[in-house]
Simulated assay, not measured.
Amino acid sequence: MAYNPPLRDWHGKTVWLVGASSGIGQATAHALHARGARVVVSARNAGALDDFVRSHAGAVALPLDAADPAAVAVAAQAVLAQGPIDLMMYCAGHYREMRAAEFDLAEMLKHQQVNYTGALYLLDALLPAMRQRGTGHISLVGSVAGYRGLPKSLAYGPTKAALINLAETLYLDLQASGVGVSLVSPGFVETPLTAQNRFSMPALISPAKAADEILRGWADGEFEIHFPKRFTLWMKTLRVLPYALYFPAIRKFTGL
């Protein structure tokens, strides 16, 4: 079922990727540029953005801390001044392993600011123009870690759960307006964030493979683009289990 207008022809389209200095964001920016999109890349790492622009003619680097609402507003005005935005992908991310015994409020709030609140700042800056125009697409990068509570994901998981709920509600509110909404739910992807993990990551894929899955999902008009299926379908099964089965299953699988 197509939930959104299919996005297949990227020639001449303007795409703003926030969180594009590495990993999924950078790989998706590369794939979109190869298909003819005008790519604007943002992140805190200005050096990485400059490197990207040097190897992608016509791409625009716009350094940005998505957790700074004033900076987001200025950046959005700069992008919109060049014409309408056809797609905004929010893929900024922060991750540190945490369990309750090491509860760190500062880290909890940093996860919230980068992973979730930054998306709200972008929506505040872009939604009025998209709704007025009656076109455009918002894509939020969540995670299967947001499906249900998981050990070591005390800080990260709740922010991704919030993004899932946000995307679902945005879709319901915006479907009739012509503005598309999609949720990207990756499993394990080889990025600087997952490089911190000290456990075996099942079905680990490359950022390039993740980007291919994302563009395929946009082309098919999907709402949730989840991958790799051999892992995410298993996680979806766990998502519907009652607690009496879910908690023992997670303890058995993780050993925690």
Rank of each mutant, 00 (worst) to 15 (best):
M1A: 08
Y3L: 13
Y3K: 14
Y3Q: 11
P5A: 11
K13L: 13
V18T: 06
G19Q: 08
R35G: 02
A37H: 01
A37F: 05
V41S: 09
S42D: 01
A43S: 15
R44D: 08
G47P: 02
A48W: 03
F52I: 00
F52H: 00
A67I: 00
V72W: 03
A73Q: 10
V74I: 06
Q82N: 13
G83C: 09
D86P: 02
L87A: 07
Y90I: 01
C91Y: 00
C91N: 15
H94S: 02
R99H: 02
E102W: 09
K110F: 00
Q113E: 12
V114K: 08
L120G: 07
L122P: 03
R131G: 00
Q132G: 09
G134R: 06
G136I: 00
H137S: 03
S139H: 08
Y147L: 13
R148M: 09
R148K: 10
L150C: 10
A155P: 14
K160A: 12
L163T: 14
A167T: 10
Y171C: 01
Y171A: 07
D173Q: 13
Q175M: 07
G178L: 03
V181H: 06
L183A: 15
S185E: 15
L193K: 10
A195P: 02
R198D: 03
M201E: 08
L204V: 05
A210H: 10
A210P: 04
I214E: 02
A219Y: 07
F223I: 02
I225E: 04
K229S: 10
T232P: 15
K236G: 11
R239E: 08
L241T: 01
Y243E: 05
Y246I: 02
F247V: 09
R251G: 02
R251C: 05
T254P: 01
G255N: 01
G255I: 00
